[in-house]
Amino acid sequence: MKVIFLKDVKGMGKKGEIKNVADGYANNFLFKQGLAIEATPANLKALE
C-alpha cells in the first residue's frame, strides 16, 4: 500500500515521502499512530 509519511519514522521514511509499505503495517501502526496517510489521488494532490 502506498502511504504518505506525516512524520519521520525511523527506518521507514521521512515526512512528506511516498513509499510502499505492507498493508498490515500501514493499517495497524502508521495510520493508528497518525504517522502516515494513504496515498490516494486526493491526498497526493493536497501534498503538492
Rank of each mutant, 00 (worst) to 15 (best):
M1K: 09
M1W: 06
M1S: 06
M1F: 09
M1D: 01
K2C: 15
K2R: 12
K2Q: 10
K2A: 09
V3E: 01
V3H: 00
I4Q: 02
I4T: 01
I4M: 06
I4Y: 08
I4A: 02
I4R: 02
I4W: 01
F5G: 01
F5Q: 00
F5N: 00
F5V: 01
F5S: 01
F5M: 06
L6T: 09
L6P: 00
L6S: 02
L6W: 01
L6G: 01
L6V: 10
L6N: 02
L6I: 11
K7D: 09
K7S: 10
K7R: 13
K7F: 13
K7Y: 13
D8Y: 04
D8N: 13
D8S: 07
D8K: 04
D8Q: 03
V9A: 03
V9Q: 01
V9T: 03
V9R: 01
V9H: 04
K10T: 13
K10H: 13
K10C: 13
K10E: 14
K10V: 12
K10D: 13
K10F: 15
K10A: 13
K10Q: 13
G11V: 02
G11W: 06
G11A: 05
G11T: 03
M12L: 11
M12I: 13
M12K: 08
M12G: 06
G13I: 02
G13H: 05
G13V: 03
G13S: 03
G13K: 00
G13Y: 05
K14D: 06
K14S: 11
K14N: 10
K14H: 10
K14P: 00
K14F: 12
K14Y: 11
K14V: 12
K15T: 08
K15S: 07
K15V: 10
K15A: 11
K15Y: 06
K15E: 07
K15P: 06
K15N: 04
G16K: 02
G16C: 08
G16S: 05
G16L: 05
G16P: 00
G16A: 02
G16T: 02
E17N: 02
E17W: 03
E17M: 07
I18T: 06
I18Q: 06
I18M: 07
I18G: 01
I18E: 03
K19C: 08
K19V: 12
K19N: 03
K19I: 11
K19E: 04
K19W: 11
K19D: 04
N20L: 15
N20C: 14
N20Q: 13
N20A: 14
V21M: 07
V21D: 01
V21Y: 03
V21A: 02
V21L: 07
V21W: 03
V21H: 01
A22R: 12
A22H: 12
A22P: 12
A22C: 07
D23E: 15
D23Y: 15
D23I: 15
D23K: 14
D23Q: 15
D23C: 15
D23G: 11
G24C: 11
G24A: 13
G24V: 12
G24M: 12
G24E: 15
Y25G: 06
Y25D: 09
Y25P: 08
Y25N: 05
A26L: 09
A26C: 08
A26K: 05
A26W: 12
A26Y: 12
A26P: 04
A26M: 08
N27V: 15
N27S: 10
N27L: 15
N27R: 15
N27K: 15
N27M: 13
N28W: 07
N28A: 12
N28S: 11
N28R: 09
N28E: 11
N28D: 14
N28M: 11
F29L: 10
F29P: 05
F29Y: 11
F29K: 07
F29H: 14
F29S: 06
L30E: 02
L30A: 01
L30Q: 01
F31W: 03
F31D: 04
F31K: 08
K32F: 10
K32Q: 13
K32I: 12
K32H: 11
K32Y: 09
K32C: 14
K32R: 10
K32P: 15
K32A: 15
K32W: 10
Q33S: 11
Q33K: 11
Q33A: 10
Q33D: 11
Q33V: 09
G34V: 03
G34M: 09
G34T: 02
G34A: 07
G34R: 08
G34W: 04
G34S: 07
L35Y: 06
L35N: 02
L35V: 08
L35P: 00
L35W: 11
L35G: 02
A36S: 01
A36R: 01
A36G: 04
A36P: 00
A36Q: 00
A36H: 00
A36N: 01
A36L: 02
A36Y: 01
I37N: 02
I37C: 07
I37D: 01
E38V: 05
E38W: 06
E38F: 04
E38P: 11
E38T: 05
E38C: 08
E38R: 09
E38A: 11
A39D: 02
A39W: 11
A39H: 05
A39C: 10
A39V: 06
A39M: 05
A39R: 00
A39G: 05
T40A: 04
T40C: 04
T40E: 03
P41K: 10
P41E: 14
P41R: 08
A42R: 10
A42M: 07
A42L: 07
N43V: 09
N43M: 07
N43G: 06
N43E: 06
N43Q: 06
N43C: 08
N43D: 06
L44M: 11
L44W: 02
L44Y: 03
L44P: 03
L44G: 02
L44D: 05
K45P: 04
K45F: 07
K45I: 14
K45R: 14
A46Q: 13
A46E: 12
A46P: 06
A46H: 13
A46C: 14
A46T: 10
A46S: 14
A46F: 12
L47F: 14
L47V: 07
L47E: 07
L47D: 05
L47N: 07
E48S: 12
E48W: 06
E48R: 07
E48T: 13
E48K: 08
